[in-house]
């Protein structure tokens, strides 16, 4: 069962990647001009003074931290869904206590203005 369940996924991956390559192939065959056009970046006509690739000012950085905490928690939540009836009340109490603590963290981050950046 295990291996056969993943077989179609592999086939599908091959089909889609093949389709993407085919599309590129069709493009090569029918495009008007084969040589690629090299040009500057567009921001309305004029060009920037530096290469735009830079250390981008990510002002939502605190949000990423809060997100990471929750994302880790989600790793536990997926398997948890399967054992709730077996383990019983304690599973639910523990999980939502955990979530409650995280939500308290969200409340604190909110009060500190982590979710606003303009």
């Amino acid at each position: 069962m295990r291996s056969t369940a993943w077989e179609p996924v592999a086939v599908l991956l091959a089909v889609v990647v093949g389709g993407v390559l085919l599309l590129h192939g069709v493009g090569v065959a029918v495009r008007a001009v084969r040589e690629p056009l090299t040009t500057g970046p567009f921001s309305g006509g004029f060009e920037p003074r530096e290469h735009p690739v830079s250390r981008f000012h990510v002002r939502w950085y605190p949000v990423t931290m809060v997100f990471l905490a929750f994302d880790m928690e989600m790793l536990f939540m997926y398997p948890w869904t399967k054992v709730v009836p077996e383990v019983g009340t304690s599973a639910v109490v523990e999980m939502f206590l955990f979530l409650g603590i995280l939500l308290a963290g969200v409340g604190y981050a909110w009060r500190e203005g982590a979710f606003r950046w303009t």
Partner: peptide
């Protein structure tokens, strides 16, 4: 889009 020329920006990855 299929008949369009490929377009690369300067120093693009």
């Amino acid at each position: 889009l299929l008949v369009q020329q490929r377009r690369l920006t300067r120093a693009a990855d």
